[in-house]
Design a protein around this nucleic acid. Structure first.
Lengths: 183, 183
DNA sequence: TATGATACGGAGGACCCCGCCACTTAGCAA
DNA sequence: TTGCTAAGTGGCGGGGTCCTCCGTATCATA
């Protein structure tokens, strides 16, 4: 861990910084080769620090994901459980719609299987779980809705509105209220 | 049109047949090169008949899209407007979740702009439009929901459940009923 | 059958991801 | 301070894709 060499740490930081820009500019399938060039390192170095595109994306989004997890923890104590959940979902939607590639990363997360506990969607799911439980307990959430369902829906909205990010929040509103609630 | 040479027509059919298999197997980013190889034609020929991946995907999905458009026309006369709309959305969801790549194709459709009337999502939007209007008129649909919204939501569900297609129908149900309808 | 239009397909360029390998260098020990 | 060693590095080559150009084969017509 800390035994990592100083230059390695330096390169790690440089690559990550460039990767953030590139992913923001070109989405989840930004060119790793290009990231290496811009960062002034060899392509092998990028691959060493981040084995595979997934690893790089997770690192890029890690901070924001952590922020969302923290936000969820704060909201756990809110008086209105339903409002807390909705606010968190809104924050997630805004982020997923604005940060190109994050939604792709989330939908790909399911592939690795349950042993991979470190992936982004697992972190998020664990984080909302308490909010979901509280909202469900107070009747603020349909009974058969799981945390995973909500993440999937938000991810889907973000993916489908890739070219119209402004619509994302509105669509979330529709999903929450119901497109055609039973009368 | 009919002045197309016989060999060109033959190749078109061969390519389309192979493309259907390849897209079903590898999703929207199937290799055009590979399609050409399997079809026994040069890569330039594929490109000639289908300029760009979008064109190829549209051709591949064209028949099913047409079937959905026809289904919408049938359902326009149904007595229960809301049920008709929901049935059509269910059919669309099932198809989008089962046919790999179709959702990607739909979300990419928005890029070309309004002048391109031939694209899949425009066809579908035009087809559901009457169903949406009737459902809204009879109170079976939230007032501020457009046909495009519904397509976007279904597309999103399909994209987000790429690795768990079985969930798609259930999520559609949640969206219809509302995850957390106002009390 | 001869001929012009049409469609074909391979070569080649640009880009990408990935694995391998010889070289450099940071950080520790004497 | 001076070596030593392993971690870290970058470049090269292989395999793949997309795309364009252009000489050539093939079809339709007179």
């Amino acid at each position: 861990m800390t035994s990592q060499r100083a230059d390695a740490r330096r390169n790690y930081a440089r690559i990550l910084a460039v990767a953030e820009q590139e992913v923001a500019a070109h989405g989840a399938d930004a060119s790793l080769e290009r990231i290496a060039r811009v960062a002034g390192v060899g392509s092998a170095t990028v691959r060493r620090h981040f084995p595979g595109r997934r690893a790089l994306l997770e690192a890029v989004f890690g901070e924001r994901i952590a922020a969302l997890v923290a936000r969820a923890a704060e909201l756990t104590d809110a008086t209105d459980a339903r409002a807390a959940l909705l606010e968190w979902l809104g924050a997630l939607t805004t982020y997923a719609a604005s940060a190109r590639g994050v939604a792709d990363a989330l939908v790909q997360d399911g592939l690795t299987g349950p042993e991979e506990v470190e992936d982004c969607s697992a972190k998020l799911a664990t984080a909302v779980e308490p909010l979901v439980r509280r909202a469900a307990a107070t009747g603020g959430l349909a009974a058969d809705v799981t945390a995973a369902d909500l993440l999937t829906l938000v991810t889907g909205i973000a993916l489908a509105t890739e070219h119209h990010p402004a619509e994302a929040r509105r669509l979330l509103g529709l999903v929450v209220a119901g497109v055609s609630p039973a009368h």
